[in-house]
Design a protein around this nucleic acid. Structure first.
Length: 379
RNA sequence: GGACGGGUGGGUGAGUGGUUAAUACCAACAGACUGUAAAUCUGUCGCCCCUUGGGGCUACGGAGGUUCGAAUCCUCCCCCGUCCA
């Protein structure tokens, strides 16, 4: 019995891109969707009011590894689960910690049973297994859980990519078996997505996708993207895997991407994405607009009275000038991060709404053509 | 008037004979960031020239001097601070 369901409302006849509705235990999500990243049970700089009432975010992402090492799944469970703990009653997807296998590579050791981590906070040793990460995510109360995977770096040899991919498939089977046992006894609904790996090798991607199909999961993810590889190779990896995944289930491209990449992934069959870029780049002075980037610290914006993006309806753009935001940035004021993050997340959500709208109207090819013409630098 | 202390590149401030166009931090300017060890990190930062690497010029309050060589030592002068008259 499905834990979440996916309803396709429109499909692009040219690309096959879909507009859909993802029904979760915590509400309905319009797809294609961008999920803001709230690693530590918070989207940095944004309140629940910003996210829900203002930006109308329907699903966000949290991280199992980070919440595991602090404050710990037991505490979160005691506080009523992650939704109640962070006061977010909409959907939550949790990453398994698989990405940390990659990003904290100096602090971990991979074996067949799982990964042994050294906590980046205090050096304590922790072991993550396919089963334990399911349990941890269930303790958090995640709506969409991810299997533990290994996200290999780039470049990686074909040999290691295969070895790693095959281990990820074995982990996914183990996790799934455990998951099915656990949810049978639960009244709540939690999906578990396997993750397609295989680095930049299309045949490994295909092989991985085919093997994961046997799990008959509610949705599938494509991982290992944007780990340093040239963008065309990311696209190739998705092109290899996405067509093999079940057409009636959501496809989630993990950890992507830049604004110009989002429609490209959707056009290749992706329904869900997440990325730290809108929030991290906001804090680092890099703002996204419909007309290209604005690096707010640049001297050219010193006395620019315009909003970040004249076509944006967000709170920041309705109230504040580039000159003011630049001043806040250079002064190191925390309000800068708040206002910039709100704008960048708005931009990402708008990008997804525009894509969805284009699919529903049957105009995705025209939309793709238009967005490909957006310059790098805003005026 | 006297006694100390001090004057260094946009700022603060190291450096007390060569390896110093001069540490570091700040500012300024530019860049990176993709399932967040990130409110982080990197580069440039006297002028001119040959587009690697290098060459030339000007620089540590001012003027002289000692020395193969001075931001660094000596002399005088000018400023600033503290203290004593």
């Amino acid at each position: 019995m499905p834990q979440i369901s996916f309803e396709i409302v429109a499909q692009c006849p040219v690309t096959g891109a879909r507009a859909g509705l993802l029904h979760t235990a915590h509400g309905v999500v319009e797809t294609p969707v961008f999920m803001p990243v709230g690693t530590q049970a918070t989207v940095k700089g944004l309140t629940g009011r910003d996210l829900a009432d203002d930006l109308d975010v329907r699903i966000l992402l949290a991280n199992t590894y980070h919440l595991y090492v602090r404050p710990g799944p037991d505490l979160v469970a005691r506080m009523g689960g992650l939704h109640r703990f962070m006061s977010w009653d909409r959907a939550i997807l949790t990453d398994s910690g698989g990405f940390q296998v990659f990003s904290l590579s100096g602090l971990r050791k991979i074996s067949e049973e799982g990964v042994v981590f050294r906590s980046h906070l205090n050096g304590d040793l922790h072991k993550f297994t396919p089963e334990s990460t399911v349990d941890t995510q269930l303790a958090l109360g995640s709506d969409v859980m991810m299997v533990l995977d290994e996200c290999p770096e780039y470049p990686v040899s074909r040999e290691y990519a295969r070895e790693s991919m095959e281990r990820t498939v074995r982990w996914a089977r183990t996790a799934y078996r455990h998951y099915l046992e656990r949810i049978a006894a639960l009244p709540t609904r939690h999906a578990l997505f396997p993750i397609v790996q295989g680095s930049v090798y299309p045949e490994l991607r295909r092989e991985c996708a085919e093997q994961l199909l046997e799990l008959d999961a509610d949705g599938y993810a494509i991982g290992g993207l944007s780990v340093g590889e040239p963008r065309p190779l990311s696209m190739e990896a998705v092109e290899a895997a996405a067509p093999l995944l079940p057409p009636d289930r959501p496809c989630y491209a993990m950890g992507v991407g830049m604004p110009d990449e989002l429609p490209e992934y959707v056009a290749r069959g992706v329904d869900m994405m997440d990325c730290v870029l809108p929030t991290r780049n906001a804090r680092n002075g890099y703002l996204f607009t419909a007309a290209g980037r604005v690096i707010i610290k640049q001297a050219r914006y010193k006395d620019d009275p315009r909003p970040i993006d004249e076509s944006c309806g967000c709170y920041t753009c309705s109230k504040y000038s580039r000159a003011y935001l630049r001043h806040l940035y250079l002064s190191g004021e925390m309000l800068y991060s708040v206002l910039a993050s709100r704008h960048n997340v708005q931009r990402y959500l708008d990008i997804m709404r525009e894509i969805r709208h284009a699919i529903v109207l049957g105009r995705l090819p025209e939309h793709l053509k238009a967005v490909r013409a957006i310059p790098v630098e805003a005026g």
